[in-house]
Structures are given as structure tokens and as C-alpha cells.
Amino acid sequence: MTRVLATLAVGLLLALLLSVTLGSVSLPIDRLLAALAFQGSEGDELVVWQIRLPRALAAAMVGAALGMSGAALQGLLRNPLAEPGILGVSATAALFATFVLYFGFATAGPLVLPLAAVAGALLATLVVALAAIRTRSVVTLILIGVGLSSFSAAIMALLMNLAPNPFSLADMVNWMLGTVDNRSFADLSFAAPFMIAGALILLMSRRGLSALSLGDEAAEGLGLDLRRQRLAVIIGAGLATGAAVSLAGAIGFVGIVAPHLVRPFLRYDPAQLLVPSALLGGLILVLADIGVRILPTDSELKLGVVASLLGAPIFIWIASRRRLA
């Protein structure tokens, strides 16, 4: 456990450093460190603090939020294929953001778009949470998430279908593909409190995830308060995912891939999985974002596109290899 954590933490730090080093302006390590310590030239500090560091940190935060949410939802729903998207949280957050773009509200202020995304995520969370209180069936819960997801996607398609001009359409597409380009520390500081609150809720309820590996009925017999556990995971994952979507748009599959890769090193315990999944999720997105920037394409690849290109085949592979239950 400790070794896994240490390895992933060091890996994430190195990836962040690498990400800050790379860019159109070449920055040797001494100038980079000087800029990080506010001892460099004004230009260097601008590049590091205004452009590269926020971008690298955004990728790390989004990956961590999605990785931890995925691990927690997989534990709750007892399904290695669950991810933040399955509850419809990502899709509803994306829908709300598209909505403010479509009607031009997004120009009213820089916080309108993120606020809308978080509001959408929380609304979806609330709907699923109410369903969780009513039903005892996990399958029902998943199906409600799938329905919510499809409904959001349908409304989104409708908005794009009726988009008044190519510019707003391009805006929406751009944002839906998912990217951490052009993020500022202001954007990060708005998303961070939601992510931290979500992560804390998930961490506080993690022991119940272990109990759930025996099934709902046995877990209740062990002394788990099933409703409270479900609410905690749904609200925690909803907050973290909503904040992630507000920061980077829709980025899929990190929440599936990260937990899957670390699970064998943690004896498959859903509780011990949370923090390593967050670290690996952050690492994956930082690396993917580096890849996006160094690949020589005419128009820049979007981070969400790369994440899906890598993640979808892994998803199919995991699905085809399930043995238990």
C-alpha cells in the first residue's frame, strides 16, 4: 500500500515537472526552477505561472477527481465498469454548460460556465440520490444513471442541432471534447473546493466500500448503513465529478482505467483503492496532456479525445475478462 502510494506520488510529481518544462518556449531546468520560486525573468514567470502550471495542475486535479470518483462508484455499484459518467453526472454537467454557451450567458462572466457545470452535476446527483433512498437495487440505480445520461445527451444534441451560428456550435463542440488548455489559477480555485469536499466525503465513507464487496445484504448484516453509504458516495462523487467537468469538460474513461490498473496491487480492496486511483488518474491525464501538446497535429488534439481513444479499448478489454459475478 505505502509503496504503491509513494510510487504514484513520485510519478505524478515528475509528470507535473515534465509538463511544466515542455512548451513552445524552451525553458531549461534552472530557469524553470527560478521561475517557480519567483526568482526568474518576468517572461519566464508568466509562462510558468500563467500558462503551464495551471494547465498541468488542472489535468492532475481533473484526473484525480475522476479516478477517485470512479473507484468509489465501482465499489458502491460493485461493478468494475462503473464511472462518474454512469450516474449521468458528467452528461448533465456538460448539458448545463452547453446551455449557458448556447444562450450566450457564458459571456456574462468567467464563472458562469463552471457554475453551470457544477449546478448540473449537483442536480443529477440529487436525482440519483433521491432514487437511491427509494430503491435498494443497484441495477435500478445504474439504469437511472443511464437514462439520465441519455436524456442529457439528447437535449445536448437538440441544442447543437438548433445552434444559431457556427461560432456557438464550435464553442460547444470544443468544450464537449474536453481540454485543459487556457486554464487559470482562478478556474482552479473555483473548482478546488468542490473537489476537496467531494474527496473528503468519499474518504470518510471508504470503509463501507470494503463491506459492500460482500454484497448489499451481507454488508448490512456487517453493520453498514446502506442508505447513508450510498448517499455519501453519490454526493462525494457528484461534487468531485461536477468540479472536474467544470474545469475540463467531458473527459471519459479515466475513472474506469485508473482504479482497474491499481486494484491488483491493493488486494482488490475498494477502500484502499481511493487514493491510489486519484494519484494514477492525475498521472494519466497529465501524461495524456503532454502527449496532446507534443503530437505534431495541425489543430491541437483535445485531451478528452485522447483519453477516450486510449480508454475505450481498455474498457472493452476489462468487460470481456470479468470472471466473478
Partner: peptide
């Protein structure tokens, strides 16, 4: 000890 004992992870 319930009658159905579904396990999902190879713990």
C-alpha cells in the same frame, strides 16, 4: 450469513 453471497473482486 445471507443465502446469496455475490463476490465481485478476487480478494
Amino acid at each position: 450469513l445471507p443465502q446469496t453471497r455475490p463476490l465481485v473482486w478476487p480478494q
